[in-house]
Nucleic acid binder design. Structure first.
Lengths: 256, 256
DNA sequence: TAGTGGTCTAGACCACTCC
DNA sequence: GAGTGGTCTAGACCACTAC
């Protein structure tokens, strides 16, 4: 053991790069400022472009950079706190809302959603009991400060909106509003929620101004009424720009 | 316009690969089953290994695959639902808990945490008012089904645990338990919470059995007592294996 | 020691934005 | 058309695991 310990745990280059660039962002750059392009940066640090990109990808994942094809890489503003709390036990669309209903179609829900809609809170789900048919699928978008932050698919079985009158002349948006309005007539008993990491589907990505596969936070909400699951919402939030809040923290982000 | 529309939006190869492999996982593989190695798969699909890896990375991000160096790529089990709800307004460590306190040190908190600790709920934070000195930093680990799912750093100012008696002979773990015990003497008025995407720091990664930079869900909790922020918790959950629940959904995951 | 995934290179071409 | 980030290739070597 006469040798000096050189690099007992040699740090990957991209990890070191990430640290160096991250520190430079804090001290030498302003929010919105544009960085040198990738080829320039790679040359400056003496690494291959792919290696540099690995570092930039991490920084983008952490919400510190924003990259746009054809434009460049800019320093991202701090993440926006988006309230996702069970606000006053409301149905979606009730009260003043940051959501905007854009469309509504009728479709057979994905199996995972169908299973959630099948679950009855008051008795065991019997195998094969009442297969879930087509449901209303309301499409909504959420914006904050002029920026689209989330796209939602709200699944509402026809049974949950018995009073809904559908005319052939109705546009998708009018139908969406009608479904939301009727939904609010039901007594809302509770909701439960789950958050997980996902990657944006092509349609969500387009509306969130991201590339397909971009990381998103998927918030699944089950709305309970009269012992049943009256509706299921699957909302995808931009993971790079959003911090989901369940209360009133709202002020600062904790980087990791 | 006499040409047939060929590929108006040519799909990237890795995106197509991800779809193909994802479907194969559903139909041809069991949970825990080991996939062919990356060189083999790349050859089979006629792409470079880097391209194949891009597809595998996405599937891992979505919690559908698990990759371990030196071992191989296996089909991941469905994500575990982990309850993160504001359970009965409890202090950390109260009641039966899935958390295990492992250590406690005294340190100067990161600036972001310091700012959260500075914020007083009952009056405006005056600039320069009472700078935050060293705080107790309790380290805890959370396990489910024998699997480590989260690592937490709990920051507790000494002012929040005035009754704590520290002896030089105390181990880190004993000190951690002491801090938690004293914390529970304070009246807990509320807590608020935020969830965002991050990447695992080296120490967290090690305890979560992941590589540094692995995607994690960072849950920041502020504990309020007597109009002050009595403690701040920063917990990092494995994003690949966890689904955070805020209620009692718990049964199924919605893939995206 | 053999086999795995992780890192890295030095190129190439493509899709997009802006001028 | 010039410049950007996004995709892709065909290699190489390294770190880790298991036998």
């Amino acid at each position: 053991m006469g040798t000096t310990q050189l690099e007992s745990v040699p740090e990957p280059k991209y990890w070191h790069l990430k640290t160096v660039i991250g520190e430079a962002l804090d001290s030498e750059f302003e929010v919105g400022e544009i960085l040198p392009n990738e080829r320039e940066l790679a040359a400056r640090f003496g690494v291959a472009r792919a290696t540099l990109r690995q570092a930039l990808e991490q920084l983008e994942l952490e919400g510190r950079l924003q990259r746009r094809r054809g434009v460049g890489t800019t320093v991202a503003p701090p993440r926006v706190g988006v309230d996702v709390s069970t606000a006053q036990h409301q149905w979606p669309g009730a009260g003043e809302d940051t959501w905007q209903a854009v469309d509504c179609t009728s479709l057979v829900p994905p199996v995972a959603v169908a299973r959630l809609l099948d679950l009855h809170a008051d008795h065991d789900a019997e195998a094969g009991a009442e297969p879930v048919g087509p449901v209303y699928a309301v499409r909504r978008l959420r914006a904050t400060h002029g920026q689209a932050v989330a796209a939602e698919q709200l699944y509402v079985p026809a049974a949950s909106v018995p009073g809904l009158i559908v005319t052939p002349a109705m546009t998708g948006q009018a139908l969406a509003r009608g479904v939301l309005r009727e939904l609010q007539r039901l007594p809302l008993e509770g909701q439960d929620r789950a958050v997980e990491l996902g990657s944006a589907r092509a349609d969500d990505a387009k509306e969130l101004d991201r590339l397909p596969g971009a990381p998103v936070l998927v918030v699944t909400t089950r709305y309970l009424s009269e012992g049943r699951t009256a509706a299921v919402s699957v909302a995808t939030y931009r993971a790079d720009t959003c911090r989901l809040t369940f209360g009133d923290v709202g002020d600062l982000q904790i980087a990791s």
